[in-house]
Design a protein around this nucleic acid. Structure first.
Length: 891
DNA sequence: CGATCACGC
DNA sequence: ACGGCGTGATCG
């Protein structure tokens, strides 16, 4: 065949226009994105690692590869997949359609973004995967119709095992289609949109009836922040499938103008009704939501509950959350309602994603359902609340099957309710301090920019651009190779760590020093203070302030797969440590007023305790019991084992060198005596550095850090680093044994179990790893090597999960206990932030002593009480005179 | 929109 | 390739 020159790809690939391969009479046609490098080299599709993984997927789905025809949307290998443009897809489409016409598959599976794009013009896979559609086109005079289903690309799954489950799931659906035809979509029962007072009365009467034992609810809002956006549609579905949709906000002209006639009419009906009767509507909703004798079920209820509360139609409870439930059932999947439902056979088609075609992204900055024609939106909301109603009992059953139901109801749901209130109240921010810091930063940044431009003599020099830095380094012949500056895909790394390598040289150090400072300050300005310097819009923290200068962060109870919470918009779990020459940024969080004060309580070395408890390591247990400073102890033990410290040095000697007298249990005389001895034995030793190093080793090992990494960090050889790790584990033999057991469990069972029963699952990864090891590829060592990497990655995740997850499971109930005591004793105190192993809260100054007592009673935990291995986990607590991290007060 | 970088526990 | 879990800003 002649060479294809229809787009730019032909002159950079080895093999021109690679044809499809496979069965001539297939059930299934799989369309991939584009040939990979091996395939380009071979001149044939389905080679190398792609082949291994794809065949593995097919096997898992029960599909025989011999029954499949494989082809690709783009026929010439692109240099870089991200360079692919519409013109490449368009140039190749004719070949793809020809294949479909000739091969006549029963179904086409588009695996990957470009495959899906080429066939449907939809540029995203995520929202459409797993759903069938009809592909129809004319080829010559022939009209061709064939079902099509998109799924993720094999490429995407090569490094990220999280995609595997979706792909296998989708392929199984395709397999089922071959024998049974298209799946029957779930039908939506009749639902009622409330458009007049009669409907409203019917809604209330139904919702208030005795037949209703529980109801789901969902709000469509104009945005994500309850204090500035509003709900415009309220949805309900009772246990008896009574489905109601109630509009509560009028549509604006710019919403309506794009709709069709029918929807414009609907919009006008809604606008008239809402305009005239909004108060009545809200009053009705208020009475319904206030009903206490029924359960309220939500999907991400924190959001709905806070919106409803702010708009004075509060729900009486948040009884059950299917999103939170789903996150316990499979922490690896996304928890969007449509995905949750589709996975459980509650398939309404791609009902969600299809609606977004009505939203013009250029005109409507915000993706809000208020832009979508009301009839479509009403149906969408009805599906959500009805699907949610179906999901509720299913997830209950699933939680029970996994033994997680009690934990879910007793801990997770209570935590969710607590955090819902925490978000609602928010924290008070200090606008004044913010602008003070901003001024200082602006000045610093401007002067650094000036300095850099003078030094480089480049007018628009942007230090924030790695590319520009690279260019400058090259022009000035910076000794990149010689100093071993790390390479990235785009050039030499310009990270702080690499730049620091230049600093000691007079000739090279000037600019890197400026850049490091510049990066630090712009980061602070952009993220935490007022946003990008020179921009008029509120940025940084300021854009999160509400009308009362309160910041309502969003706490996610389901994102981290270990059970921890994360916080975003803004993230208040990532606060910069104090920076020299700058007011402490943490202090932009202040008490509500002068009658209040802030407090902080966090666990002391919680992860160490968890390791001791889970591993039952006797040495670690003993050290924790007798109050040893573990890092100091480790430093001494390691020093001796590795002969980097004189043998005569004792724990107490070192302790006296690294801690203040008050932090030890020594008398002053003992303390000074030990110090004297220490200085005599090792006059030049950097004691604190030794302790820090030991601390790093301990923490790093909990994260699965290896020899290579330590060797770089400490500037030692890899052998020395390995020796150091061995030395550490020779102190804690029990810890080593336990790690091995956890890893074996993860690889054999596909998951590890946390104390609560919660699991961290690795099935998709371990299945793939095992299949790779089982297959006979002794001559393909490269692939085994890949599997080996993945296995090591799973080992690190598995050995860390019990520690991180376990620590969280100590912390989470404690937080609930504290909040409960505040409530029970009627103390006006509340938790404001939850930061992994500690809380930050606020109370009346007059209540400080009571609060202190509660923290001390509710947070510390004693494990294995009355046994030899009894351990008491204690807290550190602080009360702040005014600001967080300001002057503390002893209470 | 992915890669890089910086920050927290 | 080489440290677990995250969020967010910036660049090209």
């Amino acid at each position: 065949m002649s060479k294809c020159v229809d787009c730019n790809l032909y002159n950079t690939c080895k093999s021109n226009k690679i044809d499809g391969v496979g069965s001539s009479n297939p059930d299934i046609m799989i369309v991939l994105d584009h040939p990979a490098r091996v395939e380009d080299n071979f001149g044939r599709l389905i080679q190398g690692e792609i082949k291994k993984k794809l065949y593995y997927f097919l096997k898992k789905a029960g599909i025989n590869p011999a029954d499949v025809f494989f082809t690709s949307a783009i026929r010439c290998k692109p240099i870089n997949p991200s360079d692919i443009k519409a013109k490449n897809i368009n140039a190749c489409r004719k070949y793809l359609l020809y294949d479909i016409k000739e091969v006549k598959p029963k179904i086409v599976i588009a695996m990957g973004k470009y495959a899906h794009w080429a066939l449907t013009d939809k540029q995203s896979v995520r929202e459409f995967r797993g759903h069938f559609d009809e592909l129809s086109f004319n080829y010559g005079k022939k009209e061709i119709k064939v079902p099509i289903m998109p799924s993720f690309g094999v490429n995407a799954s090569l490094g990220k095992w999280e995609y595997d489950d979706y792909i296998i799931h989708d392929l199984k659906k395709a397999k089922k289609f071959i024998s049974q035809g298209l799946p029957k979509l779930k039908e939506l029962p009749k639902f009622k949109t409330v458009l007049n007072l009669k409907d409203l009365a019917e809604f209330e009467e139904t919702m208030m009836s005795k037949e209703v034992k529980w109801s789901t609810s969902d709000l469509e809002t104009t945005g994500f922040k309850f204090f500035k956006d509003a709900p415009f549609m309220h949805g309900y579905c009772t246990n008896n499938d009574d489905i109601f949709v109630i509009p509560t906000l009028t549509y604006k002209k710019h919403h309506i103008k794009k709709w069709d006639k029918e929807n414009i009419e609907r919009g006008r009906v809604i606008n008239r009704f809402v305009k005239e009767h909004r108060l009545k509507i809200m009053a009705t909703i208020r009475r319904v939501n206030a009903r206490k004798d029924i359960k309220w079920i939500f999907h991400n209820g924190k959001f709905d509950v806070n919106f409803a509360r702010y708009h004075k139609v509060p729900y009486s409870d948040l009884s059950y959350d299917t999103l939170l439930a789903d996150s316990l059932i499979d922490e690896n999947k996304q928890h969007a309602l449509n995905i949750c439902m589709e996975y459980r056979g509650l398939d309404f088609g791609a009902y969600d994603s299809l609606n977004w075609q009505y939203v013009n992204k250029d005109e409507d900055k915000q993706k809000t359902y208020q832009n979508i024609p009301p009839l479509i939106c009403e149906r969408y909301l009805a599906i959500d609340v009805y699907g949610l109603k179906e999901m509720f009992p299913i997830t209950v059953k699933e939680l029970k099957a996994d033994g997680l139901y009690d934990h879910f109801m007793q801990v997770k749901m209570k935590a969710l309710k607590l955090m819902t209130g925490v978000e609602y109240k928010g924290v008070k921010g200090d606008r004044k301090l913010l602008s003070e810091i901003n001024e200082i930063l602006t000045e610093k940044i401007n002067s650094l920019v000036k300095e850099a431009r003078e030094y480089t003599k480049i007018e628009d020099f942007n230090m924030g651009s790695p590319q520009q830095l690279n260019k400058f380094f090259e022009a000035k012949n910076f000794p990149m190779e010689k100093l071993g500056i790390k390479q990235t895909k785009t050039g030499y790394s310009t990270s702080k760590e690499e730049l620091e390598k230049f600093i000691k040289f007079k000739k090279w150090g000037v600019l890197p020093k400026i850049v490091i400072e510049y990066k630090k300050y712009t980061k602070l300005a952009g993220t935490y203070v007022e946003g990008k310097i020179g921009s008029d819009e509120d940025g940084g923290m300021l854009k999160h302030f509400d009308q009362n200068d309160r910041i309502h962060t969003n706490f996610n109870l389901w994102t981290p797969r270990t059970g921890r919470y994360s916080s975003n918009k803004p993230s208040l779990q990532v606060w910069p440590r104090p920076v020299k020459g700058l007011p402490n940024i943490r202090n932009i969080i202040i008490p509500t007023d002068e009658n209040h004060m802030l407090f902080e309580a966090d666990y002391r070395a919680v992860e160490q305790y968890v390791v001791a408890l889970l591993s039952k390591d006797p040495v670690l247990t003993k050290r924790l019991q007798d109050g040893t400073d573990i890092h100091t102890y480790n430093a001494v033990e390691l020093g001796k084992k590795l002969s980097t410290m004189p043998d005569e040095i004792t724990y107490n000697m070192m302790l006296s060198m690294v801690k203040d007298l008050e932090e030890t249990s020594l008398t002053e005389e003992e303390y000074l005596n030990y110090q004297k001895q220490a200085k005599e034995i090792a006059p030049d030793m950097d004691w604190k550095e030794k302790r820090t190093q030991a601390k790093t080793i301990g923490f790093g090992l909990n994260y699965g850090k290896g020899g290579h990494s330590y060797s770089e960090e400490f500037g030692i050889t890899e052998d020395e680093a390995e020796e150091m790790i061995e030395a550490y584990f020779s102190i804690y033999k029990g810890m080593k044994k336990w790690r091995k057991e956890v890893i074996a469990e993860a690889l054999n069972e596909g998951f590890i179990t946390l104390p609560s029963g919660r699991r961290r699952r690795f099935h998709q990864a371990t299945d793939w790893i095992n299949s790779r090891y089982a297959s006979d590829d002794s001559n393909e060592s490269g692939l085994i090597w890949q599997a080996n990497n993945l296995r090591q990655s799973i080992e690190r995740q598995a050995s860390n999960a019990p520690i991180q997850g376990g620590a969280h499971e100590v912390f989470e109930p404690a937080q609930i206990r504290v909040a409960k005591r505040f409530q029970k004793e009627g103390i006006k105190a509340r938790i404001m932030l939850s930061i992994h192993d500690g809380i930050i809260g606020e109370c009346l100054r007059t209540d400080a002593e009571k609060v202190s007592k509660i923290l001390s009673e509710e947070m510390p935990v004693t494990f294995n009480k009355g046994t030899k291995s009894e351990l008491t986990l204690d807290i550190d607590k602080d009360f702040y005179k005014w600001e967080w991290y300001g002057e503390t007060v002893k209470i």
